[in-house]
Amino acid sequence: MGEKLRITLGAVSRPLESLKIKTGDWGAEYPVVIEENCKACGDCVVYCPDLCIELVETGEVDEKGRKKKVAKVNYDYCKGCGTCSVVCRHDAIKMEIKEIYKG
């Protein structure tokens, strides 16, 4: 393969610079994962428009010896749209209003 062209002068956009934009303060609500209900099916991961949910290992092992996983929300980017709570088939995500918007 030939040498890749790399532009360094002028207005250069670098990959994934959006990660420095913390959109977590947009919404009035935020999702809370109820870990005992979570079956780690990954639906919320697939649907999340802000790519801020992932399945993480809890450190526990189930009866079949598999590592238990649960959904974990990255609140730095979650805009609180509520899509995860709607698509969850196991009632494992509920939306709560942020403290500053209460009352």
Binding site: T23, C48, C52, C81
Partner: peptide
């Protein structure tokens, strides 16, 4: 494709 994009909450495009 990364987080931090400017789509409205609930937008279908990023999905």
């Amino acid at each position: 494709f990364g987080s931090g994009h400017g789509a409205c909450p609930g937008c279908g495009l990023p999905i």
